[in-house]
Design a protein around this nucleic acid. Structure first.
Length: 709
RNA sequence: GCGCCCUUAGCUCAGUGGUAGAGCGUUUGCAUGACACGCAAAAGGUCGUAGGCUCGAUCCCUACAGGGCGCACCA
């Protein structure tokens, strides 16, 4: 054995041995394994290389899988590749931009084919990176979110929800990104604080406060609070006003949602360009006038302002209103504005016909199951967050105006925008309005399909793998507590009438050394594969786990990884010492007569086995890892080995044999327990230990807790 | 505004109702037959502040301060 451990020489070789063994696949695992343990890997975005966050996901899941496999369970870990709809399309659009091209000049099919090619290329990188981290997942069951079976089953779910009246098509204001030319769900927007002006504009006898004067062309009403003494008398009146290019008739209505204390207490209602105003229009049956087009420019209904962009026209409108002496005052105003989470373009709420999932019945179902304690959250406070969202959810817009996704299985009337299922076979019949139907060109929100992932990854509705459902643990980043987790819960319940997983384990974000979020634009992204090259996969894995509690963000410090590289080296050298000193002793050597101290050592070891097992079972991987680290270094290496040294050189045959036996026994036990954390070096060491009828360490039995060690 | 989390050694963080732990860093001494990616030792904290429950609190409760994150927005 060399005096230094060299991960480069070991890792690739070991992974190949594992993969060829077939043991990643539960069908090929030896022995009777009555209990199952299943994890569905969050499908990894196949649009680039792995992020350190992925490395954390893979490590934690691999620890659970390897532990349970050694505990004798029938373990299945299904890997997946995500086409990642909008995310990938955004990545690809950037690529097109660099090449001086634009998606808007391409035929949809041409764009789709190019992104598919790009994704399939990246998928291979992603898979190989996953292998480099030691993931013992069943590649034979890998699923891609655009596999034909996934597409067809996702579309089938759409049809089922439609027939159950849980999907509908309607005109509503949606979050429109003028750059990406698609609508987005609420979860795909973020709000940023923005300094704006609050303009007080005269509307006949009233004054209205607004930050968006450019939308006045779409005004249909003014709302006041019915309790407001200033305005009560106007409620129900229709006022005629002349603003710039246009003469308006606006009804003044009373609504309790109007805050008397804000602005002037009177609110202009523009239902086509504001979510709240839209809701107001539903309540009060108001018409909706679209005055801003899909590019964020005013349309032909705005006279001389037509064609101007929202931001430019705002100033112009104010100037013109000032000329007419219609501006009462202007105040500074800071508020949060929703922007596209990818390009930060201000969201333009826009009235559009879209498909929506009716959330209330589904959310209620999910909340009930969680309240009943059927799903365990780790850490527990995410349960509250989950329930808050379920109790306050609004209908989910699932149409996206992008090509990279699963197409919506529906026909749309060209005339009235009514939508029907494609399977209803009425395409050739005219719509009730007399219009003709065409295939819907929109695609489904990527979370609509990934929300069914635990089922789809197991091949639902085919029954072959359904014994693995419900799965045991869903492990993912805490950022997906809204975006993904709830959707899996209610879609799983809806489709299969069963929870998709028993436990949700959420890890925190991996940030840079300063605790800043890693992002390409900041240039602080650390590649896990570079770290693997530098320190070895084992060192990276264990440093991501130790000192990292669930749900808490982690500041990644390279020195820490270096420290655990040293730990690997320590293990290597302790093993080297044991192997060169145990002579003929092997695992089958009969237990010699032990000293009192030897028995004490075994007792301590037994305690470690108990603690580590308990901690892993209860998802406290950081404690299990830390205990193993300390036991190995500061007990086994520092104390036990040092104590045994004199006994190894003496002539007392029995004491010597006992020392040798103890050294091997402790080493073997601890190597087994370290395996889930640092699988490569432990498997390599295993292959060098004196064992007859050697199996791979990955399928060795976990140290027993009771009876003999 | 609402909600969640955090505040412990220089840094990054564990942890426990009974007078504090790790890694890295720092200081000192060691080439001790596994390992200098090492060994031996040491310095370093009134566990955010103020109250409360308790025989006893860093840990439980309350308030406050500072930091982070999420959600929602009043136009």
């Amino acid at each position: 054995m060399e005096s230094q451990y060299n991960p480069k020489e070991v890792e690739e070789k070991i992974y190949q041995i594992w993969e060829e063994s077939g043991f990643f696949n539960p069908d090929k695992l030896p022995g009777k394994r009555p209990e199952r343990f299943t994890i569905i890997m969050p499908p990894t975005n196949a649009n680039g290389r792995l992020h350190v966050g992925h490395a954390l996901t893979i490590t934690i899941e691999d620890i659970m899988i390897r532990f349970q496999r050694m505990r004798g369970k029938l373990t299945l870990w299904v890997p997946g590749a995500d086409h990642a709809g909008f995310e990938t399309q955004v990545v690809y659009e950037k690529k097109l931009e660099k090449e001086g091209r634009s998606r808007f000049k391409m035929k949809p099919q041409e764009l789709y084919d190019e992104i598919m090619k790009f994704t399939l290329e990246n998928k291979i990188y992603m898979e190989n990176d996953t292998r480099k981290l030691g993931a013992s997942c069943d590649w034979s069951r890998e699923k891609f979110t655009l596999d034909q079976s996934v597409i067809s089953e996702t579309q089938e779910t759409f049809r089922k929800l439609y027939r159950d009246d849980l999907i509908y098509r309607d005109y509503k204001t949606v979050n429109w990104c003028t750059k990406h030319q698609t609508s987005l769900s609420d979860l795909e927007t973020i709000s940023i604080e923005k300094k704006d002006k609050l303009y007080f504009i005269k509307y006949g006898p009233l004054t209205v406060a607004t930050v968006r004067p450019e939308t006045i062309f779409g005004d249909v009403a003014i709302a006041v609070n019915p309790k407001d003494p200033r305005y009560q008398k106007f409620i129900g009146q229709i006022i005629e006003i002349q603003h710039l290019e246009k003469k308006f008739s606006l009804i003044i209505l009373g609504d309790n949602d109007v805050d008397m204390a804000f602005g002037s207490g009177a609110l202009k209602i523009t239902p086509a360009h504001d979510h709240n105003d839209y809701n107001m229009s539903v309540k009060h049956k108001l018409k909706r006038i679209v005055v801003i087009d899909q590019f964020g420019k005013l349309n032909e209904k705005t006279g001389k302002y037509a064609g101007m962009k929202v931001n430019e026209v705002r100033q112009k409108v104010i100037e013109d209103l000032q000329t007419l002496n219609l501006i009462e005052k202007i105040e500074d105003y800071t508020h949060a504005v929703p922007v596209c989470y990818k390009c930060k373009t201000t969201i333009e709420p826009r009235l559009m016909p879209q498909w929506f999932v009716k959330m209330q019945p589904l959310a209620t179902m999910a909340a009930e199951i969680v309240r009943a304690g059927k799903i365990q959250f780790i850490p527990n406070n995410f349960k509250k967050i989950f329930l808050y969202w379920m109790d306050n959810t609004i209908d989910w817009n699932i149409s996206r105006q992008i090509v990279w996704g699963i197409s919506i299985p529906a026909f749309i009337c060209k005339n009235c925008n009514r939508g029907i299922l494609d399977s209803d076979n009425k395409r050739n019949e005219p719509c009730v309005c007399g219009g003709a139907f065409v295939q819907d060109t929109d695609t489904l929100d990527t979370w609509f399909s990934s929300g069914q992932w635990p089922l789809l990854a197991l091949g639902y509705p085919h029954t072959a793998n359904m014994d693995f459902y419900p799965t045991d643990v869903m492990e993912s980043g805490s950022d997906l507590i809204f975006r993904w987790i709830p959707r899996m819960v209610f879609l799983g319940l809806y489709l299969k009438k069963e929870i998709p997983f028993r436990t949700i384990y959420l890890h925190g974000m991996v940030n840079d050394q300063q605790g800043e979020k890693m992002s390409k634009s900041k240039g602080n992204v650390i590649s896990p594969i570079d770290l693997v090259k530098k320190y070895g996969a084992d060192a990276l894995r264990i440093s991501l786990v130790i000192g990292n509690t669930p749900g808490t963000d982690l500041s990644l410090n390279e020195n820490k990884i270096k420290g655990y590289k040293h730990f690997c080296n320590k293990i290597w050298n302790a093993t080297r010492f044991v192997l060169t000193n145990i002579e003929g002793v092997d695992l089958d050597t009969r237990k010699p007569v032990l000293t009192v101290r030897d028995e004490e050592i075994l007792k301590e070891l037994k305690k470690v086995v108990e603690n580590v097992t308990d901690n892993i079972e209860n998802f406290r991987f950081h404690l299990a890892g830390e205990e193993l680290y300390h036991y190995f270094w500061h007990n086994f290496a520092d104390i036990i080995i040092e104590e045994m040294k004199p006994r190894l050189t003496q002539d007392n045959n029995n004491s010597k044999q006992a020392a040798q036996w103890i050294l091997l026994e402790v080493l073997i036990t601890i190597i087994k327990m370290l395996h889930p954390f640092i699988p490569f070096i432990t498997e390599e060491i295993w292959s060098r230990l004196p064992i007859k009828n050697r199996k791979l360490l990955m399928i060795e039995e976990w140290p027993k807790i009771e009876n003999k060690i």
